[in-house]
């Protein structure tokens, strides 16, 4: 028997099919719980500030990754910001065409050192540019459930 035997017909390759039968359940965590509840209850985005490093974390974090301080200074940051970078998606996870294409962006929020990855809405893909000023569009209070999807999308700021 050779170590490498050539498979020249597909049916010669025997494979056992299976899966890993699990469902993951992620808690929002200590900081995430407060961050998401504020979006749900008040449509407000919170950050936490590290006084030593002078950084405002969004999404709010329990600790400063740079100096390891526990963060207890919570503050509201703006729900407006700028597109830091973006991409236009033409296919979904199963490789099916997306029509219309979706625009995904990293939005840096004003008054913070962080931001959110989210969809852009009410805008044509070819109108999007880096630096575009945008604002969060929240779902109605009755529809919000403490999820990042309580923000429907970000849309260009209307002047």
């Amino acid at each position: 028997m050779a170590i490498l035997e050539k498979v020249d017909k597909l049916h010669q390759a025997i494979a056992w099919q299976g899966d890993i039968p699990i469902t993951n359940r992620y808690t929002a965590g200590v900081a995430g719980e407060r961050f998401l509840r504020e979006i749900k209850d008040h449509a407000r985005i919170l950050g936490t500030r590290c006084p030593d490093c002078d950084l405002v974390y969004v999404p709010a974090a329990l600790f400063c990754e740079r100096c390891f301080a526990q963060l207890d200074e919570w503050l509201e940051v703006s729900s407006q910001g700028r597109v830091f970078t973006f991409t236009v998606l033409f296919r979904d996870l199963e490789d099916r065409p997306l029509d219309p294409p979706a625009v995904l962006a990293y939005v840096k929020l004003n008054g913070s050192n962080g931001g959110l990855v989210h969809y852009l809405g009410e805008v044509e893909p070819d109108q999007v540019f880096i630096g575009l000023e945008v604002e969060a569009v929240f779902k109605e209070a009755s529809e919000r459930e403490g999820s990042i999807l309580d923000i429907r999308y970000f849309r260009p700021l209307k002047r």
């Binding site: 808690t27 965590g29 200590v30 719980e33 600790f63 390891f68």
Partner: peptide, 23 residues
């Protein structure tokens, strides 16, 4: 309740504090 990151932080922070080291 804590996320994995938060659990790791709590333990790591306590270990550093216990010997008075900073990150």
């Amino acid at each position: 309740l804590e996320t994995g990151k938060e659990l790791a932080f709590e333990a790591a922070k306590m270990a550093l504090d216990s010997c008075e080291l900073t990150l």
